[in-house]
């Protein structure tokens, strides 16, 4: 039983990261109605920027907001330069653009910083939270930061005019234009915010998984899984989905011995597909009925 609780709590801690990633996925999905495969690589690149700044001696707590700001600008720029010109192209062409971005970021990071793994220090310190605690200081800190960011985001979307405009632009772009919302600017903002959140997730998880160009791939997959599990139309669902995925992943890795660590990801994904078969729009998602 102790093992069980321990694993659930540990899963909760990694789940926070997945929740962050899932949220970033949902935000871009809301803005453009596609899943961005390059999201993880963008986050990885941001994390390298953070590592570089730290290596140059910048203090950790200055690096955090700075990297998020740079990532925000970067996301906005990608939307303007790469995505906007093909706005009206078919979905699959967008998917190919994401694949291209994936290749670019992955290869550029490897070229600039090399493929050897780099340790990233934790701002919260090493070791267990208290002697005998199931989670470490870093995991606890990570969880707290994630929660704070998530509540800020929730408040942003719920209570600010920009947040409302972004939601409106995503629900009904044409109607949003007719009330004077600058829809294309909102899409750009969505990209910017999503890449800033991705950067945060990357910086938080880097001390746990070590920094290397491929570090975000599986995290992004868990993020996707969380987002889809919770329902792509619901930011809250995405967060919940992220936590569930984290816990399921940990429990599967612990209790299904033959399969062990290697197949953790597959097991998690298949569980999610199983859930989707029962609830095709995700746990908190809304299925919009289509008229013929």
């Amino acid at each position: 039983m102790d093992l069980f609780i321990h694993q659930v709590i540990a899963g909760f801690a990694t789940g926070g990261i997945y929740a962050c990633m899932a949220l970033a996925v949902v935000m871009i999905y809301q803005a453009i109605h596609h899943l961005n495969f390059a999201q993880g690589e963008m986050a990885m690149f941001s994390t390298y920027l953070g590592w570089q700044l730290l290596a140059w001696g910048a203090p950790y707590w200055a690096v955090f907001p700075l990297v998020m700001a740079i990532s925000f600008a970067g996301g906005l720029a990608i939307e303007r330069i790469v995505v906007r010109p093909i706005e009206n192209a078919p979905v699959l062409s967008h998917v190919v653009i994401f694949i291209a971005l994936f290749a670019i970021f992955n290869s550029a990071a490897g070229f600039i910083w090399g493929f050897t793994i780099k340790p990233v220090p934790s701002p919260f310190g090493e070791g267990a939270l208290y002697p005998g605690a199931p989670i470490g200081k870093h995991q606890a800190g990570m969880l707290v930061v994630t929660m704070i960011v998530l509540s800020l985001l929730w408040a942003f979307f719920r209570f600010t005019r920009v947040g409302l405009s972004m939601r409106a632009a995503s629900v009904n772009p044409e109607s949003a234009r007719l009330v004077g919302v600058r829809v294309s600017l909102m899409n750009g903002l969505g990209w910017g915010m999503a890449s800033a959140i991705g950067a945060l997730a990357g910086l938080l998880i880097a001390p746990v998984v070590f920094l290397e160009p491929n570090m975000m791939l599986s995290i992004l997959l868990y993020g996707f899984a969380g987002a889809v599990l919770g329902g792509l139309s619901s930011p809250l669902g995405a967060v919940l989905g992220g936590f569930i995925v984290g816990i399921v992943e940990n429990l599967a890795g612990t209790y299904i011995p033959v399969i062990g660590g290697e197949l953790k990801l597959s097991i998690a994904l298949f569980l999610i597909v199983a859930v989707l078969l029962v609830k095709p729009a995700g746990l908190l998602g809304r299925r919009t009925v289509q008229r013929v």
Binding site: L164, R167, A168, N172, S175, V181, T288
Partner: peptide
């Protein structure tokens, strides 16, 4: 009618005054 379907009625009204 251009309804923002997943937003509340009041949020819809707020959007009308967005400019």
């Amino acid at each position: 009618r251009g309804t923002f379907a997943t937003l509340t009625t009041e949020e819809n009204l707020h959007l009308g005054a967005m400019t």
